[in-house]
Design a protein around this nucleic acid. Sequence first.
DNA 1: ATGCCCTATGATATAGGA
Length: 259
Amino acid sequence: MRIATWNVNSVGARIDRVVEWLESAKPDVVALQELKCTDDAFPHLPIQAAGYEAVTLGTGRWNGVAILSRVGIADVTRGLVGQPDFDGAAEPRAIGATCGGVRVWSLYCPNGREPGHEHYNYKLEWFKALNATVQSELAANPDQPFAAIGDYNIAPTDADVWDISQFIDSTHVTAAERAALTELEELGLSEVMPRSLKGEPFTFWDYRNGSFHRGWGMRIDLIYGNSAFTSRVTDAYIDRDARKGKGASDHAPVVVDIS
DNA sequence: ATGCCCTATGATATAGGA
């Protein structure tokens, strides 16, 4: 079974590319982030025409997550256990579903903006809610394959950004953010490292400053799984080609194959 | 080569992204 995660930066603006990618990569399950649309506006018709059903959580202009599947979607959960509000609202950043026997979460973790910012504190609180959700689900079904995949907005190590000296006093690389990943690992999750098909192993390149052709990228779209999941992994890769050309998302898909 | 920002919004600027 092939599972993928992709921050598409607006599913409406990207729908043709998304459908084209589904047809070429042939994933069975896809976690999408940054839909930037309401549930009502989600483009179900072209997704269905490509052979997938979709469950979504979207409120409009910002955020939004979905899971696409051609192997069934059951037991859909929207939001996290104890998820914090931001600016008085629960943002659409997490959706979980069981697809083909695998429990999958599509995650769009908060950015944080800058260390010490209200949004940074929200980011750390959000990860506590993710931790509580993962802990609860792993305890309920310890033998079921479980994958928490998406845009984590954290680079796990200094090697996961193009130049760590550019990240002094920046989010995505702080000890507190990385500690949130360590705490997920302490629950029994571990990261599936994707290989790079060609070029540097990043998953995001800013639109600005020609970052993509300069190799100024970051690896922030991550695959975490429990041992029932990771023991079945046969391959994982970053589809960097999907970042090329006009009309691309600023993120590349990350794909994992399991037996 | 992949080439120097993009998206949605009660828009004609602004917020957010990372």
